[in-house]
Design a protein around this nucleic acid. Sequence first.
DNA 1: CTGAAAGCGCTAACAC
DNA 2: GTGTTAGCGCTTTCAG
Lengths: 336, 336
Amino acid sequence: MSATIKDVARLAEVSISTVSRVINDSKPVSPEARRRVLKAIEELGYKPNEIARSLVTKKSNLIGVIVDDIGNSYVAQIVRGIEEVARMYKYDIVLCSSYGREETELRFIQLLMQKQVEGIIIASEIATTKIAENINKYKIPFVYLNRLYNVLKTPTVTIDDEVATGLMVDYLSELGHKNILYVTWNKDIDLTIEKHKIKGYTDAIINKGGLPLICGVSGYKIEDGYRDGANVLDVIKKNNVTAVFCCQDEIAIGLINYLYDNNIKVPDDISVVGYGDISLASIYRPKLTTIKEPYYDIGAVAIRRILKEINGEAIDERTLKLPVQLIKRESARKIK
Amino acid sequence: MSATIKDVARLAEVSISTVSRVINDSKPVSPEARRRVLKAIEELGYKPNEIARSLVTKKSNLIGVIVDDIGNSYVAQIVRGIEEVARMYKYDIVLCSSYGREETELRFIQLLMQKQVEGIIIASEIATTKIAENINKYKIPFVYLNRLYNVLKTPTVTIDDEVATGLMVDYLSELGHKNILYVTWNKDIDLTIEKHKIKGYTDAIINKGGLPLICGVSGYKIEDGYRDGANVLDVIKKNNVTAVFCCQDEIAIGLINYLYDNNIKVPDDISVVGYGDISLASIYRPKLTTIKEPYYDIGAVAIRRILKEINGEAIDERTLKLPVQLIKRESARKIK
DNA sequence: CTGAAAGCGCTAACAC
DNA sequence: GTGTTAGCGCTTTCAG
């Protein structure tokens, strides 16, 4: 068993209050007493028990982070952002992976509440309204990060997706592309942020005097982009598409993989761009031209908001929008 | 403020002990009392405060996990393994990222101790002996996972690296390769597991009647493999190398990227294989032939060991070795 | 400046 | 089967 405040007090021949005072620097202590306490602490290797401290101060210094899957690189980036700023304020992160199961997330919220976390950030990809109801019950600072869905009326931080897709279309146009295909995950479009992205795309295309061309795939993972590659290729051929704009980097990479495996070279034969700028985007060959969603910053801003709220500071709007950035790399090129 | 056990007791008109008993199912309670307690709990939305509980039971149900960088996909896989089995035993994970700084790791250990974690797993890449001394002081269950270094006399879980590299050489030989270059991170080789990997490689090469050929690079990241690509290419040309065996997948990918950018096709012009089987290995094109380090399992086995130790069960050897697996994909092919 | 004492929310003897 | 009570290790009045 490690030393307690009592042991320190006994050894230093002072009361436990005095020990507490020097530890927390909460009230003046005579130099002599302080010296003795410090010496005793040193000798015993005493470290205050945070659990006991939390119980009385009602501050756990814990933030709960519920993620879909930490194995997703973009999720990892968000978590990095969260942790790094949390730590600046002496907060620790307790990590929960839900693997997209709603009941699991619900269970985690409760679990985290029991652990007395002071705030919760969810970075998940499921569409759910229960979560919000559930969490509001607890009146705890909370931010909901979702790359796909947009159904919860809770604080969040994103980029302006409509502007972003418009920006990409403009860029592709500059490169001389006229027939630009947008590839989207065709599920629950009304609930997802795809609604905004499609609007940005469509408006920009029409603005250039073109005709929107949209094609759906059955998921938003690399496998999905690959699996549905044949369909997409079909659409490409039938419409003389020269540039494909995928709604997620993963789909773009899956598609490029499919094209590669079928002897179609990107960007020589066709341009393919993504959305997100996941870490793979710059490692992959060809390097992916894409829209940057600043995951690290998203996490950092989210936690900062939570921390502010914990401190009772005024917090602004529910949704914070970070600047949009177009990343020009190799997977799109001038049309010949 | 949320409801406490007292509130429940008052509402149910029983003592707090009775409430505690029904919560924990620790002692028989009359059906009638139980019913009333359950009702009160329901009504108040009562959830036991884990902090208070921990204080008295001296069980925090927390495991500290110190990682180098969760942004590394293999680290994320280890953490997944840890979390998933931890959760089966009702443990939570508190995550700390050290970004390879030793002082930070040392500070985290102390911090985690103060949080009363019941065990610590470090998954880091730095070479240090201080960590072990420090942690042993606390007599807390502890596992040290390090993909590169091998200096700590602490429990760990790995694969048999010597066997693994031998296996790869054998495979490459089967494909007809005679001049197989081994690319290693040439720093602290005596301290790293490279020592074993090089031995496995060398023995196997000699065994086949070949001559070992080793070339160093200045790091173990993708950038490093890329940056030193020119040097490696030089060695390749001078020695008629037909297959390159990189000590990490990252280096292999960096190198292939370099070759790609210089119009050398893998595997058509040359075979390149890696070590680790990071998630990128199967996404990348060409898909990387490699040795699988089962990261998820490594994490799972590590936490299982910790949990066993917490429960006072007997634990076997310090180092657990998981089975070696050769993953044949596309980046190596039969010599023409 | 310092100590005694109350109490954070809960569990676990211990008595009844 | 149930209530009373003594802590867990700490912070924080409140006297002095």
